[in-house]
């Protein structure tokens, strides 16, 4: 039987074949790894789509916004894990990549606190490394120049400062020494938020329970 030769591929066709083979192999590897995306923001957007949620406006993305600097406060950064928070007209989505779930909170009138559990905020204060659960406050009045928060937790009062993200969105963190703090421990105490104007006068004081 006569041998049948395969048609010889031209240089361009050969390059195309190699690239197609490469893409197939890369896709197989991506599939094996569970389709990871390069940034937390892209993962967040994918979560929105898989949950059939309306597209939100991202108000906080620790990967992009940190280290965060506000006035004379020390630089705030996130340790180990990132967090992305998006806001629609009436909902807030909190996404922490490692948790692989999207937490959805209702957005109501007035100031709202959203604890970002499982994430470690870290900063240096008077030479000591401080850590804490970041608390996101939304609908904060625009004229706010300084924010403080006090939380009663386990019979102890703890105070924290606020870093401004953008108009109406502030990140407040309660400082603890690193040894005493665990990122997975919910901080669901009663808080008192104090907002100050540029001249130092008190603009607003609000109390509530974290996450409500």
């Amino acid at each position: 039987m006569a041998k049948r030769k395969l048609p010889r591929l031209g240089r361009g066709q050969s390059i195309l074949c190699n690239l197609v083979l490469t893409l197939i192999c890369l896709y197989a590897l991506w599939d094996r790894a569970g389709y990871p995306l390069p940034t937390a923001e892209l993962e967040f957007r994918r979560m929105e789509r898989t949950h059939l949620l309306p597209r939100s406006e991202i108000v906080f993305n620790s990967g992009k916004d940190c280290p965060l600097q506000w006035r004379d406060l020390p630089e705030l950064d996130f340790l180990d894990r990132d967090a992305v928070v998006g806001m629609t007209k009436d909902q807030v989505y909190v996404y922490i990549p490692d948790h692989n779930s999207l937490e959805i909170c209702s957005l109501e009138d007035g100031i709202i606190s959203i604890p970002i559990y499982g994430v470690s905020a870290v900063w240096t204060y008077r030479g000591n490394l401080k850590m804490g659960t970041p608390l996101l406050f939304l609908n904060v009045p625009e004229e706010t120049e300084r924010a403080e928060v006090e939380v009663w937790l386990d019979g102890q009062q703890r105070a924290g400062n606020g870093w401004r993200l953008k108009n109406g969105v502030w990140l407040l963190c309660l400082g603890m020494d690193t040894a005493a703090w665990s990122p997975e421990r919910p901080e669901d105490g009663v808080y008192t938020l104090r907002l100050y104007r540029a001249d130092g006068s008190l603009l607003l004081e609000k109390s509530g329970r974290l996450g409500e």
Binding site: I15, N18, L19, T22, C25, L26, L29, R32
Partner: peptide, 20 residues
């Protein structure tokens, strides 16, 4: 480009075979 595409295809093929 042809040589690079050959190397690229070979490396990803081996990786896919080993990891997949």
């Amino acid at each position: 480009l042809w040589r690079a595409s050959q190397v690229l295809a070979a490396v990803t093929l081996v990786l896919a075979f080993v990891l997949y």
